[in-house]
Amino acid sequence: MMRILSDPSVKVLGRSVPLPLPPMAPLSMLFSRLMRHVLQRHPSILRRMGATAGSRFLIDVTDMPFPMLLEPSLRRLTVTTRRNPPPHDTEIRGKLKSFLAMLHAEEDGDALFFSGELEIAGDTSSVVALRNALDDAEIDLTEELATLAGPAGPALRRMSALLERRTGLSLSRHRVQEDPEDFR
């Protein structure tokens, strides 16, 4: 098994005291709502995944305070803890920047794996199927959130563009990728 990161904590009188985790249930409801929305807009994801859609994926974004459990066939994405992760078939670990860049086709998943920026453990078939299904779906996270947000969508798009500029994170799909280097 992969090394499990500890949950966020602070030192108090020389002892490590866990920080309170974010409210799990509301976050899980929000993420699952987003998940259902994405799967409704991109039905090819479940079709491409076939039987592997029934797998449980522990998605550990290492620079976030909590991992998530993705259960595609149940249309569920729930927040969990590193200390007591639920049973899962496969685990994918990496930084938020890598996950977002892969989702928006700014980085190749295999290249991230070669360089150790993404790590996997468990059922490799399910990981490969998920990666291929998401890659084909051409998901745009900002658009998914904006369409889910209804009237707040335009404001959310503006906020996302601002965040993208400030943080350098890939928050939306840019149709034209940058040239590796123009040598023409």
Binding site: M102, A105, D108, D110, A111, R131, D179, P180
Partner: peptide, 15 residues
């Protein structure tokens, strides 16, 4: 490979 690989490699080789 992903569409990110395809886009980058094809663009470089077309050039």
């Amino acid at each position: 490979r992903s569409r990110a690989y395809v886009a980058q490699v094809v663009r470089a080789f077309r050039a």
